[in-house]
Design a protein around this nucleic acid. Structure first.
Lengths: 213, 213
DNA sequence: GGTTATAAGTTATAAAATTCACATGCTAGG
DNA sequence: CCTAGCATGTGAATTTTATAACTTATAACC
């Protein structure tokens, strides 16, 4: 089988296209061109076509793409034709926000267990979910067949949490703690860093000011 | 003046190096090599040196980098030798989490105003800050000379909030709503998308499963 | 039914980013 | 003072990614 590697940037954009298509669909739009998608998400039309070309032919020449179909295709490609149970560790403010974040649910993500080692948090409820002690994680993972974990704990605790997740069979981790995690081969890990983008802004603002001198 | 463009990926990594250096410094480490930084943040040593080379020579051949110095340099480059007042719109759970997020404060970011148009939220306190109605934004921006805004509202409201921010003089926006914002030339905008990275994970998990067949 | 306009798909080109490999310069030790 | 060892800084080579240009297919219209 010819396996051509898909750039991560392409997958990122695919996710964005996918959500944009959902919006178009909600608005009753039935057909869309690469140019319109490009316009809607802020990339070039060629980029849209190139990205889609990694996965097949989804459009009709001279016409464009059927919104509903392309939406389904993109979701399927991203693995979103199924629901994904998520394990969350960290019942602080960020954990709370993630639990209640609508953007997850609408894409088929569902947090099925919230864990913390802080005794003052255990037992409390977050959006109908009781915060559980870490020891309960194995059984929750089993019950829901969870494969993905989210880390929303302070930096110093993140590595231990990650290790525990891996030990209990999780295969992928989304890490909100601003530290690089060290994990065994084969475990998928991605970081969401809340302040890096902010620092890109300050960098650019500084640069802009310098330009004016 | 020779103005060579700095890749955004380089700025991103610089931010990560910078925080890693802070950690080393806290731990009392005084000298570090490009290889150690690379190891610590998960990139190649050449990458570290190349990234730094955009901005000058900071190390000593045969020795490495002075941790404290390089930390200061990186912060300076990123514009973090000063404090940055931030304007936040959206007093929902995400907004609340951002208000209390320690990762901001430790880098010199300070949220100086929280705004919402939801009457049930206005007047409430989030971490010593009272949630204000949108109309109060102009005076808060003036008072603190704020230049950066954060959007933490539902997608459908994001564009209006962005327009309002720009109208009132903000020059840069960090957008947590999963939509592409349309803004005038010269306004810096970056998106933080909480679910894109998650979808990269599901994509990769799906791919992994396919490989096994 | 042929023709034209349109937009996808594809190939080629260009640009960008990363890696590699080496020369340079510093420090320490004899 | 000279030499050996080491890690930076850098220019070249490679790889990757994005843009542009072109070809092909479809549909609508005369």
């Amino acid at each position: 089988m010819k396996t051509l590697r898909v750039p991560e940037a392409t997958v990122t954009r695919l996710s964005i296209y996918s959500r944009y298509l959902e919006r178009l669909d909600r608005n009753g739009v039935t057909t869309v061109s690469s140019g319109e998608i490009a316009e809607g998400v802020g990339v070039s039309p060629a980029q849209v076509r190139k990205d889609l070309a990694y996965f097949g032919e989804f459009g009709t020449r001279g016409v464009g793409y059927n919104v509903k179909d392309l939406m389904r295709y993109t979701k399927k490609i991203l693995g979103l034709d199924q629901d994904w149970p998520l394990i969350l560790v960290g019942a602080g403010n960020l954990g709370y926000a993630l639990c209640t974040y609508k953007g997850f649910n609408s894409r088929g993500f569902k947090i099925v267990g919230v864990f913390d080692n802080d005794l003052t948090k255990i037992g409390k409820k977050i959006a109908e979910l009781e915060v559980l002690p870490m020891e309960k994680m194995p059984e929750v993972i089993q019950e829901y067949k969870a494969r993905i974990g989210i880390i929303a704990v302070p930096p110093r605790a993140a590595q231990d949490v990650a290790d525990y997740m891996v030990k209990n069979g999780l295969e992928a981790i989304l890490n909100f703690a601003p530290v690089a995690l060290n994990l065994p081969e084969g475990i998928e890990i991605r970081n969401v860093d809340l302040s890096v983008k902010l620092e890109i802004l300050t960098f650019n603002l500084g640069f802009k000011s310098a330009q004016r001198l």
